[in-house]
């Protein structure tokens, strides 16, 4: 159990640091990959609903600390996205790189919708910019999920679903 927590914490710290330092270098316009959200959804694919909620909570906490804003919105979005990830992966879905990308993409869209309504963006009128940005980020996160899926297979997490 302690080993699992330590590995998950290390995984989160590296993903959050990559989110802060590397994501801005990989941007296309305003489309910026979220390594932290992708990592959290990949992690919760193997987890129970309760574990997924905890993973989503810490994802939101780290994300809001990185942005310096919107803590409740980020936590709510993280919990919902990770629980949806668990739900999608629990329906006899064989986890392959392609399905992992799809699950991450769908969960990213849900997280973005919750962020939009709970933590208003600086310019809420710019919905025409938000929609393409959300689609772009979902695709980008999905692509990032493919290599992360292979990493996850090597990570010896024991939070197997009951």
């Amino acid at each position: 159990m302690i080993r699992t927590v330590i590995i998950a914490a290390a995984y989160f710290i590296i993903a959050c640091a990559a989110d802060i330092a590397l994501s801005p270098r990989m941007m296309f316009g305003v489309i910026r990959p979220s390594f932290l959200l992708t990592a959290a959804i990949c992690l919760s694919a193997k987890a129970t609903y309760e574990s997924a909620a905890v993973i989503g909570f810490f994802q939101g906490l780290l994300q809001s600390a990185a942005i310096g804003d919107k803590r409740f919105a980020e936590i709510a979005a993280g919990i919902a996205a990770c629980m949806l990830g668990t739900r999608l992966c629990s329906r006899d879905l064989e986890l392959t790189p392609v399905t992992a990308a799809g699950v991450v993409g769908i969960c990213t869209v849900l997280a973005r919708i919750i962020e939009l309504f709970v933590g208003l963006p600086p310019n809420p009128n710019n919905i025409f910019g938000w929609v393409p940005a959300t689609i772009g980020i979902a695709i980008y996160n999905g692509l990032c999920a493919v290599p992360m899926y292979f990493v996850m297979r090597k990570v010896p997490l024991t939070a197997a679903r009951a």
């Binding site: 309760e50 909620a53 906490l61 919107k70 803590r71 936590i75």
Partner: peptide, 22 residues
Amino acid sequence: TRPVWVMPAALLIIGWALGLLQ
């Protein structure tokens, strides 16, 4: 067994309190 919604609800309440702090 606890209902599934208990843990997320508790975490949301904690998140809300931490949000107020921020």
